[in-house]
C-alpha cells in the first residue's frame, strides 16, 4: 500500500514537472528520412521518433517547430526554440557557438549523386546545401561549389544540369537514387566528414542539455537507438 501511494505521489510530481518544462525542439523539416513534414502536415522521420522518446525519458514536454536551415543557429540563439535536432553534424566550427550533446548517429559517409556513374567531379560545379559540412568540404577540396538553401534544390540542380553532382549525407541521397528509375546514381566515391550527428543547445542551457545527454546514453545502452537507426536508415546503417 505504501509503495502504491509513493508511486502515485511520484506520478503526481512527474505530472507537475511535465506541465512546467516545455522544451521547444527546432528542426528543418526538409531532410527525409532524418526529419520532414509528412502529408498530415506534422514533423515526421527518424528525429521525430527519437526526439519524442528522449523527451519521454527525460520527463519533458516537447513541442516541435520548424525553421529554415540557414538561420537555424541564429534562431536558437535568439531563443525561438531551445534545441536543434536536425541532422546537424558536430563540427569544431559549430562547437564554438553552440553546445552539442554526444552524437546520436555515428559519423556517416557522405555520397555524391550524379546523372551517370562516371561523372567527372572536376568538370563542373558540385551542389551542396548552404552551411553544411558538405559545402565546406567541396570548397576545401578544390572543387567548385554551388550552394542551395534546401536539400531539395541541390538534387534539382543535378537533374537540370546546373551541377554535375550533389554531395550530401548518404542516408538522404540513397532513397532518392533508388526511386529515380536509374536517372540518378550514387558515385562509388564516398567521403567521411563530420563527427556524428548531435543535438545543439545554447551555451547557457547546460541543465537541459545534460538531461537530453543522459536520455541519449540510456537509449544507447538498452539498444532502442540502434533499432531506430536500422528502422529509418536501412540494415547497412552504422549503429552504436
Amino acid at each position: 500500500m505504501k509503495k502504491l501511494l509513493l508511486a502515485t505521489a511520484l506520478v503526481g510530481f512527474g505530472g507537475v514537472a511535465l506541465a512546467q518544462d516545455v522544451v521547444r525542439l527546432g528542426t528543418e523539416g526538409a531532410y527525409p528520412p532524418y526529419n520532414f513534414i509528412n502529408d498530415a502536415g506534422e514533423v515526421d522521420g527518424f528525429e521525430r521518433k527519437f526526439g519524442d522518446e528522449l523527451c519521454k525519458r527525460a520527463a519533458l514536454t516537447c513541442e516541435w517547430t520548424t525553421n529554415e536551415w540557414d538561420s537555424i543557429i541564429p534562431n536558437l540563439q535568439s531563443g525561438n526554440y531551445d534545441v536543434i535536432i536536425a541532422g546537424m553534424s558536430i563540427t569544431d566550427e559549430r562547437e564554438e557557438i553552440v553546445d552539442f550533446t554526444q552524437a546520436y548517429i555515428p559519423p556517416a559517409s557522405s555520397a555524391y549523386l550524379a546523372l551517370s556513374a562516371d561523372a567527372d567531379l572536376m568538370s563542373g560545379a558540385v551542389a551542396a546545401q548552404t552551411s553544411t559540412i558538405q559545402a565546406a568540404f567541396v570548397a576545401e577540396n578544390g572543387m567548385q561549389v554551388v550552394e542551395y538553401a534546401t536539400p531539395e534544390e541541390t538534387v534539382a540542380a543535378v537533374k537540370n544540369g546546373e551541377a554535375v553532382a550533389v554531395l550530401a549525407d548518404k542516408d538522404y541521397l540513397k532513397p532518392i537514387a533508388a526511386e529515380s528509375n536509374g536517372e540518378l546514381v550514387l558515385l562509388a566515391k564516398e567521403e567521411s566528414i563530420g563527427g556524428g550527428v548531435g543535438m545543439a543547445f545554447r551555451d547557457s542551457d547546460d541543465a537541459v542539455r545534460e538531461k537530453f545527454d543522459a536520455a541519449i546514453t540510456s537509449m544507447k545502452e538498452d539498444g532502442t537507438l540502434n533499432a531506430m537507426i536500422l528502422e529509418y536508415f536501412g540494415p547497412e546503417a552504422k549503429t552504436w
Binding site: 526538409a30 527525409p32 513534414i37 509528412n38 502529408d39 515526421d44 522521420g45 531539395e152 532513397p175 532518392i176
Partner: peptide, 15 residues
C-alpha cells in the same frame, strides 16, 4: 507550394 511541389521519396505517403 515549394514544400508540396518538391519531389517526394517513399518516406512520404504520396511520393
Amino acid at each position: 507550394a515549394r514544400e508540396l511541389g518538391g519531389s517526394k521519396t517513399n518516406s512520404y505517403a504520396y511520393p
